[in-house]
Design a protein around this nucleic acid. Sequence first.
RNA 1: GGAAAGGUGGCAGAGUGGUUGAAUGCGGCGGUCUCGAAAACCGUUGUCCGGCUUUCGUCGGACCGGGGGUUCGAAUCCCCCCCUUUCCGCCA
Length: 425
Amino acid sequence: MLDVKFIRENQELVKQGLLNKNAADIVDTILKLDEQRRSLITKTEDLKAKKNQVSSQIPQFKKEGKDTTEIFAEMKRVGDEITLLDGQLRDLENEIEDILRNTPNLAHSSVPVGKSAEDNVEVRQWLPEGFNFKNDFKVLDHIELGKKLQILDFERGTKISGSGFSLYTGKGATLERALINFMLDYHLKHHSYKEIMPPILVNRESMKGTGQIPKMEEDMYFIEKDGLYPIPTAEVPITNIHRDEILSEKELTIKYVGYSPCFRREAGSYGKESKGFLRVHQFNKVEMVKFSKPENSYDELELMVIDAEDILKELGIPYRILMLCTGDLSFSAAKCYDIETWSPAENKWLEASSCSNFEAFQARRANIRFRREETKKPEFVHTLNGSGLATSRLMVSLLENNQTPEGKVVVPKVLHKYTGFEIIG
RNA sequence: GGAAAGGUGGCAGAGUGGUUGAAUGCGGCGGUCUCGAAAACCGUUGUCCGGCUUUCGUCGGACCGGGGGUUCGAAUCCCCCCCUUUCCGCCA
């Protein structure tokens, strides 16, 4: 959520920023409503001040035996007017809030301006030693491999739950579990995160706090009976850990990492990229979340990307880093790097991680603050999160890149102690 | 699912219609004492919004789970909702 004061003081900047993000220009509307709001506040507060002043004298009057009927009648009128104006004020505030909640965050100045994914900028690429984009044998895609090795069973996944639900069997299930454990352990040991295991059903407030609601509501599952949402990412419960809290300055930067399954309806996205693991309703993800001071958040973002990259390097999976342009940034993000891993069968890059800085956008919604020691004043923190990483897309690249000409899959060395086997097939 | 209790400041916990933003204790911060620390003592200590002050501030308003009602006046009375805890039942 953007700050009204900020909009007031940076009108042109906000207008341009919204344009860059392909969003509606709400600046003039907000300014008009805000002006009305403030003038109403002045009015009601004058009346309330009067009411309070008179009220405080009444015990005295009573003691003196003074006749108060006229005062009471007058105060009754004042009270009624206050009720009326307060009602108007509330309507106005709701209107403003509604607009702001539906307005995206602005991009950071370092983000390239662009319309769509085509304008994203490749920042760097990493390829394992001896890697070649062309294989000298016919590579199988992850679905073929999964079937041949009997480690993935999409047909039965569909039977059990529907399309977009995957079933891991045998060494496939073990490999999946190994990946999750490896990633968690690695972030704990080498990147000093604190591990979190969050609830995977959350209430509406939590979904609002991180910005999934209202804009993404169609993409969420919802359990009507209990008013709970299966999380689309562990970002939601983990960021909401500190909702409505004031943190101390010295505990920042807080770094959490947690595994959770993720649920997405993916409404309307059937057809393209939807086969096998490429687009699923349920997948596993290890998520990193940071709460930082504003002045550190962009450094923390760079570090977070490196934390995710370390995992891929350890696994020996080729990847590249993209900086998303303004038009491709998500609703809440101010800056975002996507990490894409290589799929030789698809012959293209697949998004396996997304690391974003939300600045104070989520913090303002979720009311997450810290008290600066110097000023003693509460201030909004900056929140960041990134996948570290999502296993489904990662699994595609892992299987496909590590296949042998005979159609077996070599397990990366770092996973051996988790899998207990070194090859599948 | 059945029954009961309860939601007050960072925490604990008073307060049942009129200077109550709210006693008291703990914690936090500042100070005295000390070589230093502890103890003791003294002082201080919420958030949000608006106006003026482009500083330190200052004035006003709101906030005792949320919403509505009664009243000149509500933390306190009434109604609705939400949440938490405990006990019983069921169950991993």
